[in-house]
């Protein structure tokens, strides 16, 4: 099973869409709220060199934003 981490903020719609996508496909993920978790925010910035959410880490492959077709490829192998 792939190790999936999503860095999100509570008000971010694209984060919700990404989580919805994981839930619908029965995919487990770990979530960090970077609005509050400063360490996770640093991790996210270091991984993505970006200041925007969501950042999704699929086994070390980094996705910025929610792109359904890219995630389908990476996660479901479609």
């Amino acid at each position: 099973m792939k190790n999936i981490i999503i860095y999100s903020t509570p008000t971010c719609v694209y984060c919700k869409m990404a989580k919805d996508f994981f839930q619908k496909n029965n995919i487990q993920y770990k979530e960090f709220n970077v609005a509050e978790d400063e360490k996770a925010r640093e991790d996210m910035i270091n991984k993505s060199h970006q200041l925007g959410v969501p950042v999704i880490d699929v086994d070390g492959e980094i996705f910025v934003g929610f792109n359904r077709s890219e995630l389908e490829k990476a996660v479901l192998g479609k």
């Binding site: 903020t9 509570p10 008000t11 971010c12 719609v13 694209y14 984060c15 970077v34 609005a35 509050e36 400063e38 925010r41 060199h49 970006q50 200041l51 925007g52 959410v53 910025v64 934003g65």
Partner: peptide, 17 residues
């Protein structure tokens, strides 16, 4: 873009703590 330039304030405002 995405490195401080923001187009979705509800999404990314918390990152500017």
């Amino acid at each position: 873009d995405g490195k401080g330039v923001v187009y979705c304030s509800t999404c990314d405002a918390p990152l500017f703590h």
